[in-house]
Design a binder for these strands. Structure first.
Lengths: 139, 139
DNA sequence: ATCAGTGTACTAGTTCACTAATACACTGAT
DNA sequence: ATCAGTGTATTAGTGAACTAGTACACTGAT
């Protein structure tokens, strides 16, 4: 998987790395268990300090997207696809509840809240294309 | 309208001022044409530098929420300039954006997000009756 | 044991958002 | 004209985020 960096983009380099790897995992271009390029290799490729790549890998590990080991390398985590639908929805519930409460305080009807959600969804650009279920052979 | 500041909140002071005034306008606690406290008066009240309040007022004027004039003061903008209705939506937008970002990280499709919003709306019970008469919605 | 390759830790420099200090400019009343 | 009160502009200090330089520590193969 090839990564590209825009130094003048406003968004930090380490964040660009994070986003592209997350996207790769989401689309299935990066499969669980796959080895990522080493910190120094990716740093050389992107012409960036190794610490910047390390920062991205560290955050990705904290988020559970990858796993790293000294001397071993960094790999896409196995647990990414395992999260169940209901669990993911439960995590979203607090944020949704905040939205409901706030909309009631502001007297914004539910229909307009939903419209706003759709509007903002579009404003955030296209989502990563979800992988289709028949291609899993690892992990 | 009384404003409160949390210096250790992580969110900048000028932003807290902006949010609270926007919210005041959205809820109707601040009516169009109403005079806001002067920059120095509010700065004294919040124990903050006048420039910080000025920054908030300047951003609010750019957003069309208030109007300022030298020597005259700062006033809540007239509804012809910016409708209370649109202000409500803009106040709601940050929360909606958080929801969008969160749902993308969790790979929850938009349709399920909307379903969840509807579910939680029901879970919160019926909404309060709309207030009569005191609201005009132009624009 | 050695070595090349891996991630990790510490330190420093740079940039930028945020806030403050100070001075300037306008308005309306006296 | 003067003055108190208003918003505005300029400059500077502070701190956090970001990136880089450098050194350290672990792993597996030789």
């Amino acid at each position: 998987m090839r990564l590209y960096i825009s130094p003048t983009d406003g968004v930090p380099i380490y964040m660009q790395i994070i986003q592209q790897i997350r996207r790769g995992v989401a689309t299935g271009e990066l499969v669980p268990g796959e080895e990522l390029p080493s910190i120094r290799a990716l740093a050389d490729q992107l012409v960036v300090n190794p610490n910047t790549v390390a920062r991205a890998y560290r955050d990705l590990e904290t988020a559970g997207v990858v796993t790293s080991s000294r001397g071993m390398g960094t790999y896409v985590a196995d647990t990414n696809v395992k999260s169940v639908k209901s669990e993911r929805k439960e995590v979203l519930t607090p944020t949704v509840d905040s939205l409901i409460v706030e909309s009631r305080q502001l007297r914004v009807p539910l229909s307009e809240v939903i419209d706003l959600v759709k509007d903002r969804e579009l404003a955030h650009g296209p989502r990563a294309e979800a992988e289709k279920g028949s291609e899993v052979d690892r992990g």
